[in-house]
Design a protein around this nucleic acid. Structure first.
Lengths: 146, 146
DNA sequence: GCAAGATAAGAGCATATGCTCTTATCTACA
DNA sequence: TGTAGATAAGAGCATATGCTCTTATCTTGC
């Protein structure tokens, strides 16, 4: 290993590249959703709930691939804002089921076309082919033994 | 647009895909750097400073593509931990120059091989070709008019 | 040389993310 | 059937990120 003197180029860092892209695309989607007051993270939770009806925190966290405790906190914010409701699971006293409130359903319906427009613009800006390849690359990304 | 009834599949969301990848790769790099107590975000700041010698907050934020105020806060933490030092710019009273302390240089030297190992393992896990294509896709990503 | 606009950065607020520790509940086995 | 190990979630702590508002300083045109 004689190249220890080679300068570290932070632009070579794969992690930095992905994090940077994440910040940028987040701002882009957040800006599109802004009229609803939702952020993309919140919208995805509402969308997931709209898809599955109701779910406990852990499965929802797994579904969206976020840390369990992080999901718990986001759920707390959404509950505070009256967008979702939590009720004890009838079959498991440890678990609480999350469901959309009427307000949540309304917000989701309002935000969906804005999300679609963000998707559309993103794909227009980047080219459908490039987006597809990027998605392919991300989907295959491995960060540990499965 | 008659397909409004089509279910929203959160897995179709480009933003979600990138954010998810960002969380995963961040955990991966953070785990590698763990022996030093640095996270990848902090390591990148040290690496940037090691490259440029010293810099004010705004240019450093631009260099790393993070929001100015976010950089300010990270810099505050690093200063608190004695890893960097801030001194007033001799030529501009509004600006403060950041530079590594001895401890910062030591930490950077200690963390660099761990970062290199993370890069190596990441490329081994994903295949050099796939990583190259992913980087290419991220580099080209556009989220607004330039 | 001064006032108006530009710029560097801090303060305050809010969300997002993840870690560890703890508590409550459940399940399975002896 | 009672207890040991598994599991769902909350609490507490810390960093990361971005927004708006404010303050201090600089620059430029007059």
């Amino acid at each position: 290993m004689l190249q220890a003197d080679q300068p570290l180029r932070i632009d070579a860092c794969n992690c930095n590249a992905v994090r940077k892209a994440s910040r940028q695309i987040t701002r882009f989607y957040d800006a599109h959703l802004e009229p609803t007051g939702l952020r993309i993270t919140q919208f995805l939770i509402l969308a997931a709930l709209a898809e599955v009806g109701s779910a406990a925190i852990n499965p929802l966290a797994e579904r969206l691939d976020v840390e369990r405790t992080a999901m718990g906190k986001m759920v707390g914010l959404l509950e505070r804002d009256g967008v979702i409701r939590l009720r004890p699971s009838p079959t498991d006293g440890r678990s609480r089921l999350i469901e959309l409130t009427e307000k949540g359903r309304r917000l989701h319906a309002e935000a969906s076309p804005l999300w679609r427009e963000a998707q559309r613009q993103f794909e227009q800006l980047n080219g459908a082919k490039n987006v597809k390849e990027l998605r392919q690359g991300l989907r295959q990304m491995v960060v540990g033994p499965s």
